[in-house]
Design a protein around this nucleic acid. Structure first.
Lengths: 133, 133, 133, 133
DNA sequence: GTGGTCTAGACCACC
DNA sequence: GTGGTCTAGACCACG
């Protein structure tokens, strides 16, 4: 499981970390019971302040996705996969809805908006994931 | 030309005002030469502080979209339509790209993402524009 | 005697009018006793608000350069040529000093500053006055 | 790197701050990557309100000269030196051009104008830099 | 600690 | 009337 954050994004770093762990659990890369990297290690890996990682972990603990294990760190909870699959859709939907709201008020036609979505999606996938075939 | 802002949005009010004027010019509702509402009037209409409106106007002036006419107010520049059509696409594209980047990293399939886009788009349009017939 | 103002200049219009009358008197184009155009006429000619012209005239009257003649308008005073030749140098010097102060703090070398002065001066003269020969 | 503003100048304080940072970067006193003083510190040093400093920083960010580092402050961007050297010349040229335009319309001879430039330049340098020996 | 946004209200120059 | 600048101080998100 590899993590990465984009410091220049408008999305706060701690939210990027939260989203990545949620996505990782939803996808199955982080199964229940798995111990996740310590605050210090993850902070070093991501080149961010430990407080930032800590904040992400706190929030994930609050929502029942991570469970603290004394002396060891944090482990993925049993209900995490279910919770994360739900939240994954929610996160994606909320962000897209916000962007589409502005698109809708811009008087761009439905075709133009869809074209932009297509272009951006393929630009990202071509770049990020490469050719799957 | 009607303006409105959503105070609870994560997008700053002054940026919402900027976007609305850009969209208005791009759409043709604000033709070159037109005087736009005064800082004080618009502030009253939007129920925000005049400084907030003023800040939006100044950014639009620096971008060459609005031109100050001393003692009269701000007027739409001649190059504004071209500039605004460009920036409108830019704004929409940037916001969608940010949301799609996260969607791409979520391991949701292309079909699921497109379905969400469809759903949200029609939810917004059904709500905002509706079938008037 | 021809007047003109540049609305987009950072120098207020009424100051441009004041400067032009002062320069006109200093140069001899407006001799003592000469009646200058009325507020209304000059405003129409310059496409500015009559109040703006009026303000310029008031200031020129305050400094003894223009004298009101009841029922006729304003005439150039007898001391005007002397006063204006002094003030002309002063105005030019003050504006240049302000610009040079910033140039001095910019760590540009003396050569670079002089080069800019040369370039700008010739650009203006080539454009505004044409070939004198 | 020392900053100072002249409250009585006709140039707005926030623009003076902008110009000083641009000049500082152009000169090399503020190299890329360097963190500049915080809004609050600089405000205290200049005896102005933090908002005024903040406004200057934001304009420099929009121009790509400063980059916000969340939680740390603002750092000088990599392209800043190039951008600032360009803008420095631009600022100086624009202000001198404005002053020279008026000088040109004053019917003063080229010699007189150059003499004024010389006098003012040496007055400023004698005063500001002087011979320290 | 950092910067960002907003409200509030004063004062100014200009038209 | 117009916009522009500044001070003041609150609140927030982020690290």
């Amino acid at each position: 499981m590899l993590f990465e954050v984009r410091a220049e994004s408008s999305i706060p770093i701690y939210e990027q970390i939260i989203a990545q762990i949620i996505f990782g659990v939803a996808e199955g890369g982080l199964p229940p019971g798995q111990l996740i990297p310590s605050v210090r290690d993850l902070a070093k890996q991501l080149l961010v302040h430990p407080n930032t990682v800590s904040r992400a972990f706190q929030e994930l603990e609050r929502t029942g996705i991570l469970i603290p294990v004394r002396g060891l760190g944090m482990k993925v909870s049993d209900e995490a996969p279910r919770l994360c699959r739900e939240r994954r859709r929610e996160i994606v939907r909320a962000r897209l809805a916000e962007a589409l709201r502005e698109a809708a008020s811009s008087a761009l036609s439905e075709e133009e908006v869809h074209q932009i979505v297509q272009e951006e999606w393929h630009r990202l996938n071509g770049k990020a994931k490469g050719t799957k075939s």
